[in-house]
């Protein structure tokens, strides 16, 4: 009996400790509608809403931090934060360095944004953000690629004629095309990427399992689809 009480106490204690865990969520904060800094100066967007809900379901306390896209993987690996949640597509190349949870958006085609709708992208100058699947795609095809550190700069490059088109996630380009009359989405789209997931350190299997379970529960009860539609980030599951 005494043993049982002790065991329960230990269990309760360790459960208490586990729920007090702080998980630091690293994001870019420059990629609306996925993640951006709102007027109040806080991280906002689809991934903020998703991340907060996942943390609630996994019973974790979450803190949000922003980090430049370029160094977002090195800073995860060296432990500055515990999770990358930044619209990062799951690719084999990244899988070699970090682990991904299951995807929280389905694989979606990437789109082109250009000044005129009849642009032939083959042979054109294409802008893309550094270290993205889109940049890798353009480089693979041997087209002329100009890379930029932030997504904002890729759009500016098209506007001022430095590049002919931007290749990026359609969800990022669509609001831009909507707001600016002289920029249009091309009909051509590219099926690249394997869906977007959260990145965790390879040694962090426990955290990955927790988030996997939380994502699954959101997929099962349809709340993930609702969130995707609300922020218009991708197609639904």
């Amino acid at each position: 009996m005494k043993k049982l009480v002790l065991a329960t106490a230990a269990l309760a204690l360790s459960a208490g400790l586990a729920s007090a865990d702080t998980v630091r969520m690293g994001t870019e904060g420059a990629y609306p509608p996925w993640n951006f800094i709102n007027d109040k100066g806080e991280v906002d967007g689809f991934e903020r809403a998703l991340g907060d809900e996942l943390c609630k379901r996994a019973e974790l306390t979450c803190e949000w931090v922003t980090n430049e896209w370029d160094s977002i993987i090195p800073n995860l690996v060296s432990g500055n934060y515990d999770v990358i949640i930044a619209g990062m597509s799951i690719t084999d190349e990244r899988e070699q360095v970090i682990d991904f949870t299951q995807n929280y958006t389905p694989p979606d085609p990437s789109a082109y944004l250009a000044l005129s709708a009849d642009l032939d992208v083959e042979g054109a100058v294409i802008a893309a953000q550094t270290n993205t699947i889109q940049a890798a795609f353009v480089a693979e095809h041997g087209w002329t690629l100009v890379e930029f550190a932030t997504p904002e700069e890729t759009i500016a490059a098209v506007r001022n004629g430095e590049a002919d088109a931007v290749l990026a996630d359609k969800s990022y380009l669509a609001p831009v095309a909507e707001a600016e009359a002289d920029l249009v989405l091309l009909e051509r789209e590219e099926a690249i990427g394997g869906g977007v997931g959260m990145g965790v350190r390879e040694s962090d299997g426990e955290l990955k399992a927790k988030f996997d379970a939380a994502i699954q529960s959101m997929k099962d009860d349809g709340s993930l689809n609702a969130l995707i539609s609300k922020w218009e980030v991708s197609s639904t599951f």
Partner: peptide, 16 residues
């Protein structure tokens, strides 16, 4: 400066 100066889309801010 880069973050604030970048194009502000009306969907994501009150001050486009």
């Amino acid at each position: 400066a880069r973050e604030l100066g970048g194009t502000a889309n009306p969907r994501f801010t009150d001050y486009p």
